[in-house]
């Protein structure tokens, strides 16, 4: 059993997270403590390492140095005598159940109907019965406004609808933390709006969220805090309001002014 190394109120604790691709560092010493219920926007130019950081939080990609804690539990590694040994597939899978993830390209299971997609986690991972899982799944589809699409296949839906189903699928596992990797980048502005509406609803429900995004509105409207990254480094960590009104770092200033002109 891991002894919680951080305060219980901390939902995600990044400690010196570092990752290399070949010899190039894609994440350098990223540290941040994210309290329960906070909505955090990860901003920065493409290639800044926003997506990689999210993918490290649920160990879709391994890290090379540092530690990640979710609700005080060290993710994917077990510490023994100052060495972190990677956990078994079984144990990492158990940790991932509490961490929901939404992808830029939706990644709905193509061979399953919408309802089966939403039920897939509860049924195959949590071992719920079909009727039990169906009850929750239908309620979640209702919540994202897609009850009537339960019997459709993903390819019959628009991108915005697919992303809303993907959010419902992640929520079906009742995650403590949600990771959203560019959730609206593959959508045109109109479809992005309907996805943003669903995310806004979540933000008001006290789920801890990390959102990597290009969409300034997403960050400006309901993020509590901005982590601004450049080249794998955390350049600025500020409350969202202050980041947009009064960015401190030169790169942040440049980024904010360029994007507010565009908007």
């Amino acid at each position: 059993m891991n002894v919680p190394n951080s305060l219980p109120a901390c939902a995600v604790d990044l400690v010196g997270v570092t990752k290399f691709r070949g010899t190039q560092a894609v994440l350098r010493q990223v540290s941040a403590r994210i309290p329960q219920g906070q909505v955090v926007a990860l901003l920065g130019p493409s290639g800044a390492g926003k997506s990689t950081l999210l993918r490290c939080v649920n160990h879709l990609e391994p890290i090379d140095d540092g530690q990640i804690f979710v609700e005080g539990e060290l993710i994917a590694y077990r510490e023994r005598n100052d060495i972190c040994f990677e956990m078994s597939d079984r144990d990492v899978s158990r940790q991932r159940q509490r961490i929901g993830m939404v992808f830029q390209s939706f990644n709905l299971f193509r061979h399953m109907k919408v309802l089966d997609n939403v039920m897939s986690g509860p049924r195959y991972v949590m071992g719920q019965s079909r009727s039990q899982a169906e009850h929750t799944a239908r309620a979640l589809l209702e919540r994202v406004g897609l009850s009537e699409k339960a019997g459709a296949y993903p390819h019959q839906l628009s991108g915005g609808q697919q992303q809303r189903v993907a959010i419902a699928r992640a929520l079906a596992m009742s995650p403590r933390v949600m990771l959203l990797d560019e959730p609206t980048s593959a959508l045109d502005p109109e479809l992005a709006q309907e996805v943003i509406a669903v995310i806004r609803q979540l933000a008001s429900e006290n789920i801890t969220m990390l959102i990597a995004t290009h969409e300034m509105r997403l960050a400006r409207d309901f993020a509590d805090r901005v982590l601004f990254m450049v080249g794998g480094e955390l350049v600025e960590d500020a409350p969202a309001r202050r980041f947009f009104d009064d960015p401190q770092h030169a790169r942040s200033k440049q980024f904010v002014s360029r994007h507010s002109h565009a908007a």
């Binding site: 991932r96 159940q97 992808f103 990644n107 897939s120 195959y124 992640a170 990771l179």
Partner: peptide, 24 residues
């Protein structure tokens, strides 16, 4: 992306193969 999604839900390696990859 299909494997990523299954993995993120907490499916284990065998389940990902059996439930997601092989059917597709």
């Amino acid at each position: 992306g299909q494997r990523d999604a299954a993995c993120a839900l907490g499916m284990r390696r065998g389940q990902i193969l059996y439930r997601v990859v092989i059917p597709q």
